[in-house]
Computed example of a mutant assay.
Amino acid sequence: MSASHRFDNAKRRRPDDHARQAMLTPAYVLEPVRSLLGGFDLDPCTEPGNPTDARAFYCLPQDGCSLPWDGDTVWCNPPYGEARDRWVTRCIAEARMGKRVALLIPAHPDTRTFQKALLAADSILFFKGRLKFGVLRENGRQEAASHGSALFGFNVDLTPLSSLGVVVVPRQVQQCLRVAA
């Protein structure tokens, strides 16, 4: 018997503009990150109402991944489909230019996209439990992620957010491994 019935790859392959890609970051995540960064200069992939209160923002039909990213602090909660690879690449590139970037993506450590972010991040927060997004289901309950989530800090120390989960600092782990070897 095939295991294909357990996996719905169509969800992973949804385009950026699919209605089910819009998952608003819950306030219990957004507010502490906003406070830590002193606000957001840019949110390149948000909703028309700018729920992150970023000073500048892009929303569909604009492709915020390909437009200019002005400002020093960036909040990025990209679509969770396969297209997120290009968002991770852009976040890393902006961080290399000195910007402070917070990137929220699924915690799938077995994927190349996650590992690319892991190797470039200064800190990573693995959230306790599954995030509950600001989208109500038909039964009135908030939509919960079907997976764990991770927040990557590029030029950002996420340690002050440890009440939300476990913070890992990849460079410290790498240094410990070198010492042990």
Rank of each mutant, 00 (worst) to 15 (best):
A3R: 15
S4R: 15
S4V: 03
H5G: 03
R6I: 02
D8A: 06
N9E: 05
A10S: 13
A10D: 11
R12T: 02
R12A: 08
D16A: 13
H18R: 03
L24A: 12
T25M: 06
Y28K: 12
R34D: 01
S35V: 05
L37H: 11
G39H: 05
F40V: 02
D41A: 12
L42R: 04
L42T: 06
D43N: 07
P44E: 11
P44K: 09
C45F: 13
E47M: 14
G49P: 00
D53K: 12
A54F: 06
A54D: 10
R55D: 04
R55W: 01
R55F: 00
Y58C: 12
Q62I: 00
D63S: 10
S66A: 14
S66T: 10
D72Q: 15
V74G: 11
P79K: 02
R84T: 05
D85A: 15
R86M: 12
V88Q: 06
R90E: 09
E94R: 13
R96K: 12
M97S: 15
M97Y: 09
L103A: 09
L104N: 09
P109Q: 14
P109A: 13
T111N: 01
T111P: 00
R112F: 01
R112C: 03
R112S: 02
F114N: 07
F114W: 13
Q115V: 05
L119S: 10
A121L: 10
L125N: 10
L125H: 11
G129W: 13
G129M: 07
L131A: 05
K132M: 13
K132V: 07
F133N: 03
G134C: 03
V135G: 00
R137H: 02
R141I: 02
Q142C: 06
E143Y: 14
A144V: 14
G148S: 08
S149K: 04
A150L: 04
A150K: 01
L151H: 11
G153V: 03
D157N: 15
D157K: 07
L158M: 06
L158N: 04
P160N: 10
S162I: 02
L164I: 00
V166W: 10
V166K: 15
V167E: 04
V167K: 08
V167Q: 07
P170A: 15
Q172A: 05
L177F: 11
